[in-house]
Design a protein around this nucleic acid. Structure first.
Lengths: 357, 357
DNA sequence: CTGCCCTTCGGGCACGCGCCCGAAAGCGCT
DNA sequence: AGCGCTTTCGGGCGCGTGCCCGAAGGGCAG
């Protein structure tokens, strides 16, 4: 540390000195409070402009810390073993929370069961009652989500959506993936890997498929690519709403018996692990397998060579950014009203060691 | 903002109260200064442990701001038009600087010409004379870099290396890519894309190749993959130290005449743009082209379909993290002594829109 | 002229921490 | 006992900002 000061970074004191008033008066102008004559206000504003004054965030937040806490709420699915996925966004949120706790910010989590709509509704009510300062939600159920968004709008509570968007609603921003493009990218990879004469299969493994926006959009993107390449005839598909191993295994076995020329399997979610298991059990390392999410189970099969590509969308960063966006908005009045569309990353056995979720 | 306080987050005052001493005494213990009897020190440390006390960074930095500025220096190549690459790390550093200026940190940049060793040496001397508090360097020239590292070691100035490492030297950490793996990953992609009977070509376009660690390591990684797959016979190579378009074009044309079965071209640096240009001029969209770096020129050819894969290693984030690592070390005494190996990202025409450098 | 209100502003405290100065206590020596 | 030195510790100021309280000063009615 040197003893010189460099760029003194003019503060309120300096402005007050130049305007020949007290710091309190300058403070009133800065916060647009009443009690300052129009004349001195003009003068002070000119000096602020001239010096390009920017308040010291540390001091500001330090002073504000006494007055009370900023309270944020997060509505997200609980990470069951079936959907380990939500652990990652939660980790990101915890990271953000640790970073900004010092600034007097407190984060509360409201978990719900993805499969039970009523748990979602109940948590929405709790959030409304708790009168938070900002809300981050994963709008799994549309109706109640809109209800919450309306409430926030009325009370002027900033609200950030994550993971999937509800277009046409008022919110601070959306943070999450562009699902169509992630399907499109998968198709591109599949297409690169297909050898002459081979076909690709779209595999959906989910309790509900028809109403699952995430899956439908990905499939649409996937199909769009093959349509562009005039290769729709290379596509097959396999759906099952039974998410156990046996259903998947028997279904795929039947499919491959009928269509032996399958070169690529594209699984539209993290259940790709089931398919990988089946490939291992049937000893088919030659089939290219593309799936989703940087989960420990998937990584294991990536290492073993049964999964070839994992598409990942930085879930941890999604959580981190969600909290930070609210924080910056509430504490520093900085609003990035643009949506944050997460990158679509390709993870293989050769680069997964360096991947950061 | 609510009026409640929640979790008062015990500070020095509370510790002093419990230990029945003054805040100054606690302060002495925290900063491990002399002047405290062993007995009270023990007592205070126990309370600190118990409360899991963590100093408020805002207040700490605010208090420290008066005593002087932390001065960081960065030694990096100037971004010539030939190597637009270095613009990205610089942007990341500027971003970091803006974030931490409030904490009393000042960053100075020392640019040199990548092709002129003497400019590097001159800047090393300037850095030594300027007596900085922390240094971030891209050690393009090894001899002078080691000289600088030695100097830093003597003066106990923390030093971070970026972009390429000098193993065996003492430094805070290395931030940059694992070059071998990036070549290995490229080979994996190439191998996936090769159709039966096709071959892949390693293309080096650089003024100096034999002493260029970055290129050599990548090539080694690339070869390693094909060796593992027992497919070394599928590899060809093409080197040129003339970095103009004509040399590249005529060289590749000659190669393809002799070996018409080329399916993949792997260019080991950002000069891939020259190859793309050649592919466009000869109308060969069928050849898969793999190259490096998220540069505007490369993106253009990605869009047009002449470049298929770009390998990118988040240069902007490298710069950002470099500065932040020094900052955290000097200001908060937080040291991540682990190296930060950047992710190796795969960018295609389908996901480049979402990529963040 | 006096009393009152309203506008306009300055002084002062707080936030949590770092650090300097000087006070009190302990100890050895003459 | 008196002196000086060392060890140990407390009080207090400052960092830049937010905000409250109360003090001036001017205008107006009685």
């Amino acid at each position: 540390m040197k003893e010189n000061k460099e760029i003194p970074l003019a503060g309120v004191k300096e402005i007050a000195r130049r305007a020949d008033v007290s710091r309190a008066t300058v403070d009133r102008v800065i916060h647009n409070r009443s009690g300052v004559s129009e004349k001195t206000k003009k003068r002070i504003l000119a000096i602020i402009e001239e010096l390009d004054y920017q308040p010291n965030v540390l001091a500001r937040r330090l002073a504000l810390a006494s007055r009370g806490t900023v309270r944020l709420g997060v509505l997200l699915p609980s990470a069951s073993e079936e959907t380990e996925y939500w652990k990652a966004p939660l980790e990101g949120m915890n990271r953000a929370e640790a970073e900004i706790r010092q600034y007097g910010v407190l984060v509360s989590y409201y978990f719900f069961d993805q499969n039970v709509q009523s748990t979602f509704a109940a948590q929405v009510n709790r959030i409304i009652n708790d009168k938070l300062d900002g809300v981050l939600i994963a709008p799994v159920f549309e109706k109640e989500s809109i209800q919450l968004l309306d409430h926030c709008k009325k009370k002027e509570i900033p609200c950030v959506l994550m993971n999937s968007d509800i277009p046409g609603t008022e919110r601070l921003c959306y943070i999450g993936p562009e699902l169509f493009d992630s399907g499109y990218l998968s198709a591109q990879l599949a297409h690169y890997c297909l050898k002459p004469g081979q076909k690709a299969v779209v595999v959906n493994i989910a309790r509900k498929i028809k109403r699952n926006v995430a899956i439908l959009e990905k499939v649409e993107g996937f199909l769009a690519y093959f349509r562009e390449k005039d290769s729709e005839d290379l596509l097959l598909s396999f759906h099952t709403t039974d998410t156990d191993y046996d259903s998947v295994a028997s279904g795929l076995s039947a499919l491959l018996e009928k269509e032996p020329q399958v070169g690529v399997l594209y699984v539209t979610n993290s259940r790709v692990v089931l398919v990988a298991e089946w490939l291992e059990n049937t000893g088919r390392k030659d089939i290219i397998l593309i799936g989703y999410d940087f989960l420990s189970g998937n990584i294991r099969f990536l290492e073993k060579g049964y999964i070839d590509f994992l598409i990942c969308e930085k879930p941890q960063e999604q959580g981190y950014r969600g909290i930070m966006t609210l924080f910056r908005h509430l504490v520093f009045s900085v609003t990035d009203h643009e949506n944050y569309l997460t990158p679509i990353d390709i993870v293989t056995s050769a680069n997964y060691k360096f991947y950061r979720n």
